[in-house]
Design a protein around this nucleic acid. Structure first.
Length: 269
DNA sequence: ATCACGACCTGGAGGC
DNA sequence: TGCCTCCAGGTCGTGA
């Protein structure tokens, strides 16, 4: 589900919980990604702390408090973070509840690919590259990172240590916008193409964010609203339709086990 | 060290 | 209606 624009949309719509005081916590006891269980005791120990801010790096979301700890979330494929009234019935697949007096921050995740942990506030997310919205994209650094890499451009753009926050939808979209074939080897990226790619990634993410993210099926923001960006996708999920640029039929291919959409004519190999 | 792949989970869609 | 297969926005560990 959620790539950078979706996580950022969640972050923004969670703003009303800033200033709220944590009064308790509940966990389902089920393991999430890598079978890791959210730390019940450490979540409960946050009681009494006040939420001071919300940060995002790539697809990770951090809920800061006035104590030494922050709550770290990753939504995986089907994770949702929503603000509820305490008396609202608990949805199926709810795994974490942070109680905030009469309100609750609830994390639900049917597929359990997500993550919830309690970390030190200055916790560094290792192996995460620059965030396009927070740090921008440096085309020269992108070009350097591609040097010697034999992976496909598709895999390169999906590599979170290169750029944090790009997922499968926006990887296809950005490569289409940059007119680059997903199967091209990263080491073949020229300086000019790296510039185009950097601009395309930034543009695709910013546009999606302006539309409150892409909802294919699961994604909703903290208020339960769906994103509007799916109707503006140029190639993702559009195999068989004409390329918006040159009218050639868009193709679907599989790279590293994941669907990739591209135009065989205007995305140069 | 780098890369491709399968595994981890549940649920929705479509075919029969 | 039910059963089956395939597919899904992410990440990690494995083995080549």
């Amino acid at each position: 589900m959620p790539e950078l624009p979706e996580v950022e949309t969640v972050r923004r719509t969670l703003a009303p919980i800033v200033g709220a005081r944590i009064t308790g916590a509940w966990t389902s006891g089920k393991g999430l990604h890598m079978n890791r269980r959210p730390p019940r005791a450490r979540l409960r120990a946050l009681a009494g702390a006040t939420i001071t801010g919300l940060r995002r790096h790539g697809k990770y979301l951090l809920v800061d408090t006035d104590g030494p700890s922050s709550i770290l979330f990753h939504l995986g494929m089907t994770g949702r973070l929503r603000i509820h009234a305490r008396r609202d019935p608990r949805a199926r697949h709810t795994h974490v509840i942070v109680q905030l007096g009469r309100r609750e921050l609830r994390f639900t995740d049917p597929r359990r690919f997500g993550l919830c942990d309690v970390v030190a506030r200055d916790h560094v997310l290792v192996d995460l590259g620059p965030d396009p919205l927070v740090h921008g994209i440096d085309a020269t650094a992108l070009h350097d990172a591609a040097r010697g890499r034999t992976v496909t451009l598709k895999a390169f753009v999906l590599d979170q240590s290169v750029i944090a926050g790009v997922g499968n939808i926006y990887a296809s979209e950005a490569l289409w916008r940059a007119r680059l074939r997903p199967s091209l080897r990263a080491k073949r990226l020229t300086a000019t193409a790296a510039k185009r790619l950097g601009a395309a990634v930034g543009g695709v993410l910013a546009d999606a964010l302006a539309n409150n993210g892409t909802t294919l099926r699961d994604f909703v923001d903290a208020d339960g609203e769906r994103g509007d960006n799916s109707e503006y996708l140029d190639v993702y999920g559009r195999a068989g339709e004409p390329c918006p640029r040159c009218k050639t039929t868009i193709r679907r291919a599989v790279h590293q086990g994941r669907a990739t959409y591209y135009c065989p004519t205007c995305q140069t190999p």
